[in-house]
Simulated assay, not measured.
Amino acid sequence: MTTQHRVRGSTWRVILRWIPALLLIGATIALYASGLATDISFDNIQANEVRLRAEVAAAPIVALTVFVGLYAVATAAFVPVGLVLMLAGGFLFGPLVGTGATIVGSTLGAIIAYVAARFAAGDRIRAMLNRSRWRGLMAGFEQAPFRYLLTLRLVPLSPFGLVNVAAGCARAPFKPYVAATAVGAIPYSFIYSYLGAGLGQAFLGDPTPDASILLRPQVAWPLLALALVSLVSGRLKRREQTL
């Protein structure tokens, strides 16, 4: 094989390696350019509640598929609408179906981002991350991937998208990565879906409720559960840091 052929082969390998990342960047641009990324808000969902519920009732499987797909793409593309979509899942589909849909959507989105980062990141990028302030994160993926990832998934306000990319760059084992992501999504998906369903019930009785809505059981119980999960996950993070 000539030097020219080797150079061409190397160039094509680099291009192919970056295709998943480029497709993901394209999806991000499309979501913002279409206005969909900024239109996804709980206020808009509430304002269009009647139409959305009618569409879900008319074609529940299609609506659920679209919801899961949108959740996955938004998660992978770093569009910060996960909280809104978790609430919307319970609001539109009910707490149990909403929980399942958000777990599947967030896990698929995390897999897409992981694959894109893993293909794009070469040895040079991984070596650079290992020498940066990310080296602790990279070491955690190597030493105890499932436990470490599960802790990161449960910690409140953890940078979900950055963890996906870092895990891909570090080449964290795929099965523990998927398992920890799916298990870690359960508590928050469950709580926010129930909260969304509770808010939906409250809005049916009063479209413009006051602060007393927080005292209603269907809203107060999910908020209490959220506080407890945040407390427990905070303790888990501190324990992980001392190990």
Rank of each mutant, 00 (worst) to 15 (best):
T3S: 10
Q4K: 09
H5C: 07
V7N: 12
R8V: 11
T11N: 08
R13I: 15
I15H: 01
L16F: 14
R17P: 02
I19N: 13
P20W: 03
L22D: 03
L22Q: 09
A27N: 11
A30Q: 15
A30G: 14
T38F: 05
D39F: 06
I40M: 10
S41I: 08
F42D: 01
F42Q: 02
F42I: 03
F42G: 02
N44Y: 05
I45F: 12
V50N: 07
V56R: 03
A59N: 15
A63H: 00
A63Q: 00
V68E: 02
V68Y: 05
L70D: 01
A77C: 04
F78W: 04
L83C: 00
L83D: 00
A88M: 06
G89V: 05
G90I: 00
F91Q: 03
F93I: 01
L96N: 08
S106W: 04
A110T: 03
A110K: 01
I111K: 06
Y114I: 11
Y114L: 11
Y114F: 15
V115Q: 12
A121D: 01
R126C: 05
W134L: 06
L137I: 11
M138I: 03
A139N: 09
G140Y: 06
E142L: 13
R147M: 00
Y148T: 07
Y148Q: 01
R153V: 07
P159D: 03
F160L: 08
C169E: 02
A170L: 09
A172Q: 06
A172D: 11
A172E: 07
F174T: 09
K175R: 14
A180D: 09
V183F: 13
Y192V: 02
Y192M: 10
L195I: 15
F203S: 08
L204V: 15
D206T: 12
T208I: 14
T208S: 15
P209H: 08
A220G: 10
L224D: 10
L224G: 09
A225S: 10
V229K: 00
V232T: 02
V232A: 04
R235S: 01
R238T: 07
L243E: 12
L243V: 06
